[in-house]
Write a protein that binds this DNA or RNA. Structure first.
Ligand SMILES: [Mn+2]
Ligand SMILES: [Mn+2]
Ligand SMILES: [Zn+2]
Ligand SMILES: [Zn+2]
Lengths: 142, 142
DNA sequence: CCTCCAATTGCAACTTATTTGCATTTGCAT
DNA sequence: ATGCAAATGCAAATAAGTTGCAATTGGAGG
């Protein structure tokens, strides 16, 4: 991923902080929370402020550079967005690994919502569980 | 809804605080957040402590007496659970009104997850938008 | 290269939404 | 009526961000 190019494409200034954030995120395709991300960003660019990280997470999500999900407990998770277009995720609670789902349940019910006059603006569909690796590990295999 | 009966059925003690919480929630089928609920509970049972409300929201969700959803911003929403069995929601961002969806997208992809060895433990599917009433209001009709 | 200015950052204080430890009270089974 | 686990109240703590503002800086234009 060409970080600078992606930022410029979206008319965002190329700052060391943004480069650090995206560098960290591009080194893993697992979801990560803002605090952990902040810790890792500090290793790449010491002195970075955490409000800068939070502000940029918002910015980068709104510019479609990141995927964000928010879990039941609270605490959002972020990952770099490598896929084009609308999609959903399967997320491993063990290691954070993800599987992308192209299937969107909205397709199935959009029509029914129209019938009752409901105008959908957004939706969420996420699946949590354990991937093969994490499941095997917890069962003492491997 | 017979509040006392539902509590006893789940081996929860019938306390004035729980009665107040469930009374408030049973007077509306819209989702509401914990703070607003707390305010309304105070009207029914002055002096109720907010940590009691929070603790009971957790308890009541875990006993399937309430539905909980958590939005992107943070701040969970609760409503009484009148439906039997697994279901999802369409939620109006204007008035909080809900539509229950029986359709569950998990049915469509459970098999595919099995194929890759992923064991799902839970999932989320929610649709947000504006109901007919709220949409009309915002457009100056009615 | 230099200039300029909106965009971005750092800092600190604030907020919101809970959560937790502990002493006291209470529902309810016996 | 009694006993005690469950539930509550209170206060303090925490987690996860958010915000106002002054200082800094990326990068467009000259
Ligand atoms: Mn895993
Ligand atoms: Mn509505
Ligand atoms: Zn979708
Ligand atoms: Zn479902």
């Amino acid at each position: 991923m060409d970080i600078d190019r992606e930022l410029k494409k979206r008319q965002l200034k190329v700052t060391p902080q943004r480069q650090a954030i995206l560098k960290v995120l591009s080194q893993s395709d697992a979801f990560i929370n803002a605090q952990n991300l902040y810790t890792k960003v500090l290793e790449v660019l010491p002195g970075t402020n955490f409000s800068t990280v939070y502000r940029n997470l918002d910015t980068l999500v709104s510019k479609d550079l990141l995927c964000r999900i928010s879990r039941e407990n609270g605490g959002d998770l972020y990952k770099i967005r490598s896929e084009e277009g609308h999609h959903h995720h399967v997320i491993c609670k063990g290691c954070g690994a993800t599987i992308v789902i192209e299937f969107c349940p909205m397709d199935t019910i959009r029509e029914k919502l129209e019938d009752v006059g409901f105008v959908p603006t957004d939706h969420r569909f996420e699946i949590y569980g354990y991937c093969k690796k994490c499941k095997d590990k917890s069962m003492g295999n491997i």
